[in-house]
């Protein structure tokens, strides 16, 4: 059963990433250089929709709280995020969209995946040294959530009810998706100042 779910949900995820343009380096580049934020709006809407449905489902008893999986916060999360950001802008791919783009036949996506496999291997090789730096030591409560979610052991950064807060934040994400302009940098401001 899990195998079938992997194929169905994974397949749907790949297809949707293709259809929203997330696997196109052009669309990623235009989002990150702030000239076309439609994909950003889609991502914000998706996070909001997912959050409202998940926490709403939990409150109604439809969604198993045990399916949540909250990752630990440590300084390396931020540093790794910075690294991923540079590579994301350079290649135009993140790990998931690189795989989808390879499926779509983009040749540079295969180069991205090859580089990714080497980068992951480099991390495997350097993991003990990275761990020794303390970059992986938990901060901000470890695997904490912003509120305290009923039925979980995740520490709450605040004592606010985590499920209600999750729905409210989800609605904020949806609202931001709608108010975010489609373009931040105007063409004329990008001309060289001479």
């Amino acid at each position: 059963m899990e195998i079938i779910l992997a194929l169905v949900i994974g397949g749907a995820f790949g297809a949707v990433l293709d259809r929203i343009g997330a696997s196109s380096p052009n669309v990623i580049g235009r989002m990150l250089n702030l000239t076309n934020l439609k994909l950003m709006k889609a991502i914000l809407l998706a996070i909001g929709v997912g959050s409202v449905l998940m926490f709403g489902g939990q409150m109604l008893g439809i969604v198993d709280v045990g399916h949540m999986s909250v990752k630990t916060a440590y300084l390396g999360v931020f540093v790794g995020g910075l690294m991923l950001g540079v590579g994301w802008a350079l290649a135009g791919y993140c790990p998931g969209t690189g795989v989808v783009a390879a499926g779509a036949g983009r040749r540079d996506a295969f180069a991205f995946i090859a580089g990714g496999l080497l980068g992951a291997a480099a991390y495997m090789a350097t993991y003990p040294a990275v761990k020794a730096t303390g970059l992986l030591d938990a901060i901000l409560g470890g695997n904490a959530t912003l509120g305290t979610i009923p039925g979980t052991d995740y520490p709450g950064l605040t004592g606010l009810p985590g499920d209600t807060l999750g729905i409210l934040l989800g609605l904020v994400f949806v609202a931001v998706a709608f108010v975010l302009p489609e373009r931040i940098i105007r063409k004329d401001t990008r001309l060289p100042a001479e």
């Binding site: 990752k71 630990t72 440590y74 390396g76 999360v77 931020f78 540093v79 790794g80 995020g81 910075l82 690294m83 991923l84 950001g85 540079v86 590579g87 994301w88 802008a89 350079l90 290649a91 135009g92 791919y93 993140c94 790990p95 998931g96 969209t97 690189g98 040749r107 540079d108 996506a109 180069a111 991205f112 995946i113 090859a114 580089g115 990714g116 496999l117 080497l118 980068g119 992951a120 480099a122 991390y123 495997m124 990275v130 970059l135």
Partner: peptide, 24 residues
């Protein structure tokens, strides 16, 4: 282009593993 994609892939996956996750 392939060289840039390869280098980008290296940094992305090293960073993602350091962070313990990626964009998804």
């Amino acid at each position: 282009r392939y060289a840039a994609a390869f280098a980008g892939g290296f940094i992305v996956l090293y960073g993602a593993r350091l962070a313990g996750g990626c964009t998804s």
